[in-house]
Amino acid sequence: MIWLPVLGLVVGVAIGFVANVTIPIMYSSYLSIAILAALDTVFGGIRASLDKTFDSAVFLSGFFFNTLIAALLAYIGNQLGVDLYLAAVVAFGVRLFQNIAVIRRVAFDRAGKRRLKGN
């Protein structure tokens, strides 16, 4: 089952190439922040799954909500002349690294347990 998300990623990339959708350069920054939020949500979901606390409703709503809020924050900051997107970048970046670190630790723990079982 682990191949499903990878397959989904490949399919999404393929759809993106086939659809050949482009956005204006002025909206590119908003999409960047949105992608960062989406990645944060993905890794947050993986971590939650490893911690046995995964909730699909929270996961899905978090994905869309965070994505939209991040883009909206960047837009408002651009309108106000304040680099509010930096706040989103820092917040999502920190969380992203934390989640990845947790995932890594859990993965190592599980690998260690398997090794012990095998011995």
Binding site: L4, G8, V13, G16, A38, L39, G45, S56, F59, L60
Partner: peptide, 30 residues
């Protein structure tokens, strides 16, 4: 059941992320 839901949710989200990343990459000038 919970794992299956997680997998499908993650698949959908990764599909969306893949699409968004592709759009972002193809929209940006070299």
């Amino acid at each position: 059941m919970k794992r299956t839901t997680f997998m499908w949710s993650l698949t959908g989200i990764t599909t969306l992320v893949g699409f968004l990343v592709t759009v972002q990459l193809t929209s940006r000038p070299p």
